[in-house]
Design a protein around this nucleic acid. Structure first.
Lengths: 333, 333
DNA sequence: TCGTAGCAATGAAACGATTCAAAGCTGAGA
DNA sequence: TCTCAGCTTTGAATCGTTTCATTGCTACGA
């Protein structure tokens, strides 16, 4: 037994297919009695609209494609949730894929989405994608890059001002009286990390009394274990050389740093050392010492990207300002 | 300018549309020179297959729908990743949606997926869905429930034996010499939590020397803060009444319990108290005291569900055994 | 030279929903 | 009774791909 089509519904209700289509899409154009007859035929046959036929006729789908680096990463998970929410509000659905930082996978997904004639594409790109994205624009697929700023005019972008984020983190430390600051980071060649480092140095440079200093401490990775190891080695210094504040490139590093202080036992957070993280992951507020951090508005990024795509602003460049969330780890309360 | 169709490609290459289609789908049926001509026409025009037309003709899509309770939850994120991976291996793509525990949202997504003529549906259901799923089966959409066991024959299921999980957690504690066990949990009416509790009691009941006991300690929620608060109140007891082992219904609770012990400072993990979590989230291995836990094979669940759907076993019921991951928090170094 | 096997290429039909110009109907007013 | 406006309904054409029965062609053996 095949699934029912509009034709079957039309036959059973004794009307034409055009009328059935109108019941589905323009109910007010159909007389009430007819509409009821058609609707009960639909129910009887268990008719379900065939979206493929619909799309074929329409020439495009009500779908948006989103390719992120890793959907399991909480930041991108939140971004995807925001995008999904906004898409649903506009009666669109969201197709989600993870490139896992693999350019091949990324290309495969882009191709797939193009075959599906998605309305638009949200992309957190692995490497250089300018050419590919220009291609897409040529085919009429508008694209918005997420978590990456861009200058091109063929596509838009939403990103976070990480220079600003680094600056407000360190400004906060300076304001609360800290003077010897360490920036703990890994993968410093990543644009995100490099920008935070730059903002941090800017803040120190602009400190009026000029009594502050900042140094870079490299961890082996952007993880809890990386932060713990880097901090433990920092703690081997002479007491006089121990910083009075640590700014970590993300919350995982900061969590590891906090563990290191607890394991070592000699210095207390925030009394002896202040600690600032970055991202405001869920865990930051429930750490042993709740973590002061810089929040990136992940859901908002997703929502905005979708709005840009569906609105007529798909070639603008929106930059979000991250926000300081002051908690106990810098003694603020 | 419209996007190119097979017709346009055929015209430019000087062949018929049937031949173009064969180049795309059965290249070996086409003579080499013709194939090359068609391929360069495809490249010249930037032709991209229209998936909607393809699906319409085929009668079904190469897509699988997955509706989970919350895609941002690490467990479901991992499950989705496993499903996605397996789907890709079979040249299918995965459509992911979160019901956010809302039955309405769940239904909307199921309808949407049905309109898209998905090949099959993976569902981690909110409430009672037997009727709806039977409906789907009637329309020829096979369904596999995930993280939920079922008895019905119209659909399959993949789930985890949480009774077993509770049992091996407590058996491990008993084997390492612990005798007074607390089970810290919240939302005890959830099937998953109730099963773990049952397994835990079974293990105590079967302890040969009969010298062991277990009690339920309720937390306000299945979170880090819940675990911390519940453990802190436990620590207000007389020293003689403090358990020598705590089994938490998930890793977040266990993380909170660990924080409580560190904040309190009187008892050490694992020397004075052993600690076991559940799920093996990423954070478990990088806690201050690495956490012994029960791993649920989330990715494997996803992979298996997809395999069942695409194979001919879409009405079986697969139950996975969770696995003990022994780490420092139970003294197993 | 004829017949034929076998490979290549053809192109009309089909999938199912939507669109839109045209036709049908009803009732009010002349 | 006739006309016309306004509301309903009709149904052929369309979207782009795949399928498959048919046709065209080549080369080989008789």
């Amino acid at each position: 037994m095949r699934t029912a089509s509009v034709k079957d519904v039309a036959d059973r209700a004794g009307v034409s297919v055009g009328t059935v289509s109108n019941v589905l899409n323009n109910p007010d154009r159909v007389a009430e009695r007819t509409r009821e007859r058609v609707q009960s035929a639909i129910a009887d046959l268990g008719f379900v609209r065939n979206d493929a036929a619909r799309q074929l006729r329409a020439g495009h789908s009500r779908t948006i494609g989103l390719v992120v680096l890793d959907a399991a990463n909480p930041f991108y998970a939140a971004l995807a949730r925001g995008a999904e929410e906004e898409a649903t509000r506009h009666n669109f659905s969201l197709l989600l894929a993870s490139s896992l930082q693999d350019a091949d996978r990324e290309h495969r997904y882009i191709d797939l989405f193009e075959e599906q004639r998605v309305q638009g594409l949200l992309l957190s790109p692995v490497g250089e994608t300018a050419a590919r994205v220009a291609d897409l624009a040529g085919h009429g697929v508008s694209t918005v890059l997420v978590d990456r700023d861009a200058e091109a005019e063929t596509y838009g972008s939403v990103s976070v001002d990480d220079v600003h984020g680094g600056r407000i983190a360190v400004e906060h430390l300076l304001e609360t009286g800290r003077r010897r600051i360490a920036f703990v980071a890994a993968e410093t060649e990543l644009r995100q990390v490099a920008d935070r480092w730059r903002g941090a140095r800017d803040a120190v440079a602009q400190e009026p009394s000029a009594g502050a200093s900042i140094e870079l401490v490299e961890a082996h990775s952007l993880t809890t274990l990386g932060g713990r190891a880097a901090t433990l080695s920092l703690l081997e210094r002479e007491p006089a050389d121990i910083p009075d504040a640590i700014f970590c490139a993300n919350d995982l590093l900061a969590t590891g740093a906090l563990q290191a202080f607890i394991m070592d036992g000699r210095y207390r957070v925030p009394d002896d050392v202040a600690l600032v993280g970055y991202d405001d992951i869920e865990f930051a507020s429930s750490a042993i010492v709740p973590l002061t951090t810089i929040r990136r508005p992940a859901e908002e990024l997703g929502r905005t990207a979708v709005r840009m795509l569906l609105g007529d602003t798909a070639s603008e460049h929106t930059v979000f300002r991250p926000e300081l969330i002051a908690r106990a780890s810098t003694g603020s309360r």
